[in-house]
C-alpha cells in the first residue's frame, strides 16, 4: 500500500520498468555488435560538431540505440541553451 501511494504521487518509478528500459538499450547494442568505444566516440564527435551550432552542456547529451520493429534508430537527446549565430553576414 505504501509503495502504491508513493507511485501514485510519482515518487519512484517501478524498478521492473527501469529494468526493461535498460535491457532494451543494452540488448540493442549487443545485437548490433556495437563496440564499447563506438558510442563514446560518436558521442564526442557529435558533440564537437553540434557545438558549432548550439550552446549546450556535453554532459547533458543522451544517446541511445533503439529497436523499432525490424529497424534500429539512433536517438539523441540534446537539451540546448541557444543557437549560435552562424550567419557571418549578420
Amino acid at each position: 500500500m505504501n509503495i502504491s501511494i508513493k507511485r501514485l504521487f510519482g515518487r519512484k518509478p517501478k524498478s521492473s520498468n527501469i529494468a526493461k528500459q535498460r535491457l532494451k538499450l543494452v540488448i540493442t547494442q549487443d545485437r548490433l555488435d556495437v563496440d564499447d568505444r563506438f558510442m563514446t566516440r560518436l558521442h564526442h564527435e557529435l558533440a564537437e560538431v553540434l557545438a558549432k551550432y548550439f550552446e549546450f552542456s556535453v554532459n547533458s547529451v543522451q544517446m541511445s540505440l533503439k529497436q523499432e520493429g525490424n529497424s534500429y534508430v539512433l536517438v539523441a537527446d540534446i537539451p540546448y541553451k541557444k543557437f549560435h549565430d552562424t550567419n557571418p553576414r549578420r
Binding site: 507511485r7 517501478k14 521492473s16 520498468n17 529494468a19 532494451k24 540488448i27
Partner: peptide, 16 residues
C-alpha cells in the same frame, strides 16, 4: 513481485 512492480512480467520479457 510482478504485482508490486519489482519484477518484469512475461510481456516485458517476450517483448525484449
Amino acid at each position: 513481485l510482478v504485482g508490486s512492480g519489482s519484477m518484469m512480467d512475461q510481456d516485458d520479457v517476450l517483448d525484449i
